[in-house]
Write a protein that binds this DNA or RNA. Structure first.
Length: 335
DNA sequence: TCTATTTGACCGAG
DNA sequence: CTCGGTCAAATAGA
């Protein structure tokens, strides 16, 4: 039984990974097309075709993800004894320590009360590249996150910001994520997701596609404490573009979280509401590709499972050349 | 006034 | 004991 569930979850993970890739491809093609139009590109036709293909591909993957997720959720609930809401009495959890079970995996009253221990939640690790230090739009994924903490991590140059779903209390959505600028590349963020969104918002995003609930603003500047104005800019200003800086390559790799770094004197303006891409529920834009102006680039997020993932996929390191046509023709080359 | 962020403190794991 | 993760009071902005 459990095997079944794990298998399904693995399926979800895998599908979402592919979905992310498609989304990225889509975003970059959109960007490319813009450039072509400006430069009077001749390849517009081919690009159009690519977009159609991607659209089809994504639709179908998206459906598969949802189907699999349903099964997965159902299994999970059954195993946990019923409601996703209620404190998982052990549900699927690996008992953490002999202590209290979970109602308090946080010594002080777990706010949500119904969220399982982090460690038992599926975890996805992704990396997101931004175009400029201030540009955090790629971290946007259409779902609202609320920052609840920030920590300087030993050995890391930049602090790590902690986010949880805005609807944690109201809808018992246990999704959370951690965002941290990588030491080596200030434009690259490690984003670790824990658990998937179960809130209506996530479903809405998946269904409505472009439903952005909140603005990017995500995570970090790691450089200076910003003055209110600056911080505000980061938090509310409309987003710059990813494609500009994403360059010809999207990179995905696992955390190499430690680094040279040393002191963290800076504070990362976690920034307001972060809408970040949900690797769980694809904010699939139904009308696919119809956006001329890629507002919320769905970043370079790629869901990959790590440790606790059912699949136990280990670390990954991908490079995706942005040759859409080639990708579509020889997808195998990219996996 | 409400909502979100900041930040110091607390807690559990290793 | 140290460190990562989270809570919650204080604070800021809309």
């Amino acid at each position: 039984m459990e095997g079944m569930s794990e298998e399904k979850c693995a399926l979800v993970t895998e599908l979402m990974r592919v979905l992310e890739i498609v989304r990225q491809l889509e975003a970059h093609m959109a960007a490319g097309q813009q450039q072509q139009q400006q430069g009077g590109g001749a390849a517009a036709g081919g690009n159009q075709r690519c977009r159609e293909l991607v659209c089809t591909m994504r639709d179908s993957i998206d459906r598969a993800v949802h189907m699999a997720m349903s099964c997965c959720a159902a299994d999970g609930r059954a195993a946990a004894g019923g409601q996703p809401e209620s404190p998982p009495s052990g549900g699927d959890g690996s008992p953490r320590s002999g202590g209290s079970v979970d109602g308090d995996f946080r010594g002080r009253g777990n706010a949500a009360g119904q969220c399982k221990k982090r460690k038992t939640l599926p975890k996805w690790n992704t990396q997101v590249r931004v175009s400029t230090v201030q540009d955090v739009s790629p971290l946007d994924d259409g779902l609202s996150w609320r920052k609840y903490g920030q920590k300087d991590i030993l050995g890391a140059k930049y602090p790590r910001a902690y986010f949880r779903c805005t609807h944690r209390h109201t809808q018992s959505c246990c999704a959370s994520k951690q965002v941290q600028r990588t030491d080596g590349d200030p434009l690259l963020f490690d984003v670790v997701y824990h658990g998937s969104h179960t809130c209506a918002q996530a479903q809405g995003a998946a269904a409505a596609g472009s439903g952005q609930v909140a603005r990017p603003a995500a995570a970090a500047s790691g450089e200076h404490k910003q003055q209110p104005a600056a911080a505000g800019t980061e938090q509310h200003a409309a987003t710059p573009r990813l494609e500009a800086a994403a360059g010809p390559m999207l990179q995905f790799s696992l955390p190499s979280n430690d680094a040279a770094g040393g002191a963290t004197s800076s504070r990362f303006q976690g920034g307001g509401r972060v809408a970040a891409a949900s690797p769980f529920v694809s904010p699939a834009t139904p009308e696919c590709l119809v956006r001329d102006v890629p507002r919320s680039h769905h970043d370079a997020e790629l869901a990959s499972t790590t440790d606790s993932s059912p699949m136990g996929m280990g670390e990954m390191d991908f490079m995706f050349p942005l040759d859409a046509a080639d990708f579509l023709e020889n997808p195998a080359n990219y996996f």
